[in-house]
Simulated scan of single mutants.
Amino acid sequence: MSFASIILALVTLQRLGELVLAHRNTARLLARGAIEVGANHYPLIVLVHAGWLIALWIWGRDQDVNLAALAAFLLLQGLRLWVLAALGPRWTTRIIVLPGAPLVASGPYRLFPHPNYAVVVGEIALLPFALHLPVLALIFTVLNLAVLAIRIRAESRALSVSGWPRPRSP
C-alpha cells in the first residue's frame, strides 16, 4: 500500500466518522426543536465532496506525496478539530437552526466567520496538491466555491430570519 493510499484511507475514515457525528448531532438538534434550512443544496455539497474523494482515489492513490502540501493539510486538521470543539453538539454538515440559541462565538468563531468553510476550501485545494494533482485541485476548488456561495447565502438568510446577528457558525 502506498503512502498516498494510506493518506486517502485516513481522510476517508475521517470523513465517514464526521458523517456519523453530523447525523447524530442533527438528530439531537432536531429533537430539541431545531429546523433544517437550505436542504435543497445539500445533495450538491455531498456530490462535490464525494466526487473529490473518489477522484483522489482514482488518480492519487499511487502518487508521490508532496510533504509541504501534506504538512499544510495536516495543519488544517488542527483547525478542523478546533472548529469541532467550538461547536460541540451543534456541529453538523447541514444548516440546522436552533431558535433562541446564541451564535457560537468561541474558538475560531471569535476570530472570523465561517472557519469551517475556510478549512474545507483549504483541504479541497491542498490534498490534491499533496498528491501532485493540480488540475483536480482547481476543478474541485471551483465547484466547492460555487456550492459554498449557495450555502453561505442560505445560512445567512436563515440566521437573519431567526433573529440572530451576522452568522458566525456553520
Rank of each mutant, 00 (worst) to 15 (best):
M1Y: 09
M1I: 11
S2G: 03
A4L: 02
I6F: 12
I6K: 14
L8Q: 03
V11D: 01
V11M: 08
T12H: 05
L16E: 13
E18Y: 09
L19C: 05
L21M: 14
L21W: 11
A22H: 07
H23V: 04
R24D: 12
R24T: 06
N25R: 00
T26C: 03
A27L: 09
L29C: 04
A31E: 11
R32I: 11
E36Y: 14
A39D: 06
N40D: 13
N40P: 03
N40A: 12
H41Y: 02
H41P: 02
L44C: 04
V46D: 09
V46S: 13
L47Q: 15
L47Y: 04
V48D: 10
V48N: 06
V48W: 03
G51L: 15
G51K: 08
G51R: 04
G51H: 03
W52N: 13
W52L: 02
I54G: 06
A55V: 10
L56W: 00
L56G: 04
I58A: 13
I58V: 15
W59N: 02
G60Q: 11
D62M: 10
D64A: 08
V65A: 02
V65I: 08
N66E: 09
L67N: 06
A68I: 11
A69S: 14
A69C: 13
F73Y: 08
Q77E: 12
Q77L: 15
L79R: 11
L79K: 12
L79P: 00
R80E: 10
R80A: 13
L81M: 09
W82E: 12
W82Y: 09
V83M: 12
A86R: 15
L87S: 10
P89G: 13
T92D: 12
T92V: 07
T93P: 00
R94D: 05
R94P: 09
I95F: 03
V97A: 14
V97M: 02
L98Y: 07
L98C: 14
P99S: 10
V104Y: 07
A105D: 15
A105K: 10
S106W: 03
Y109W: 10
F112H: 07
H114K: 13
P115W: 05
P115S: 06
P115H: 03
N116Q: 14
A118T: 05
V119Q: 12
V121E: 08
G122K: 03
I124C: 04
I124E: 00
A125E: 01
L127C: 12
L131P: 01
L131Q: 06
H132S: 06
L133V: 01
L133N: 06
V135W: 15
V135I: 15
T141K: 15
T141D: 05
V142A: 07
L143V: 01
N144Q: 15
L148T: 00
A149H: 10
R151M: 14
I152R: 07
R153G: 00
A154K: 03
S156M: 05
S156H: 02
R157N: 02
A158Y: 05
A158G: 09
S160Y: 00
V161T: 02
G163Y: 09
W164K: 09
W164Q: 08
R166M: 08
P167F: 00
R168E: 00
S169G: 03
S169W: 05
P170A: 11
P170K: 10
P170F: 02
